[in-house]
Design a protein around this nucleic acid. Sequence first.
DNA 1: TCTATCTAGTTAAACTTTCAAGAAAAGGTC
DNA 2: GACCTTTTCTTGAAAGTTTAACTAGATAGA
Lengths: 167, 167
Amino acid sequence: MTTASPGEPRWLSDEEQSVWRAYLHATTLMEDHLDRQLQRDAGMPHIYYGLLVQLSQAPRRQKRMTELAKDAKITRSRLSHAVARLEKSGWVRREDCPSDKRGQNAVLTDEGYEMLRRSAPGHVSAVRQAMFDRLTPEQMRSLGEIMQVVATGLQPEGTDADLPWLR
Amino acid sequence: MTTASPGEPRWLSDEEQSVWRAYLHATTLMEDHLDRQLQRDAGMPHIYYGLLVQLSQAPRRQKRMTELAKDAKITRSRLSHAVARLEKSGWVRREDCPSDKRGQNAVLTDEGYEMLRRSAPGHVSAVRQAMFDRLTPEQMRSLGEIMQVVATGLQPEGTDADLPWLR
DNA sequence: TCTATCTAGTTAAACTTTCAAGAAAAGGTC
DNA sequence: GACCTTTTCTTGAAAGTTTAACTAGATAGA
């Protein structure tokens, strides 16, 4: 249901190939760039940083594990490991959820918030330098639309809910 | 030189933030999607598949390790591990380089080529379905330009050569 | 030649991610 | 309540990646 029907190998045109190569190239370099920048300036990979950002924007700087995993588009297992690591670093703390004894809240600590405050300018600057400072307003708008289309197409099948929301 | 100068935290505008979120979201979903597709249909992650593609397009279906690493934008260390794994699977074989006794050539085996031939249609189909079938010709052209700009901006500093070609 | 330096590739150890399995609580349904 | 299913989160092992150190061979200069 997800992939090919045999017998009709519709290859990519030359232009499509070239766009695809550019896409892979650029996204690879970008991810490497940001991982390196954050590893250097904040001591953690990009995705971990993203988790802290999510927490910093949540109501009481905390979120249920499952919700956080969903918002960050990672598996719960991966999140468990990641939070364990962030806890060891002191940026996050776990708290039992009062209303559901199975639940855990990941809470951004003051140290975590402070770290975020310190490293955010550098990160924004890296993003801006790598992407926005190089694009015209038209290109920026266009990129937004395109990424929106692609994301929507890849969105977890169930159009509405969060049932098999990831893999 | 790479990141911020303190005192001027130029944050992202609302639109920039929205584009950036869409970018992260879409690229994450895309990478997950392709990794899953290839793990299922070819038994290897996306990047390993890319290595085989590179080899399949090289002159005698072989390449020096360093060159392959450079073309695939990964470190030599990562390539060493990857080739070890691909060798164990039988898709790739190592050969001593005749002209440089330090050198190794990674060679795509017949089995590797055959596997590629079998799984390529499904992979192309997955890419097409996730991206090209959803974009207008204008969007495709625009995406190509944008990715080109971004990649160029992140290209290893040394404008000409391959000195510190990666990290 | 002798020596210092550079390049190619590998390796070990620490870390991250994935996969499969599992414990515990919650939610039906009878 | 008893029973079955689902949801939440964790765990351990295997796979993959990163970092730094290391071996061997190539290169260049005195």
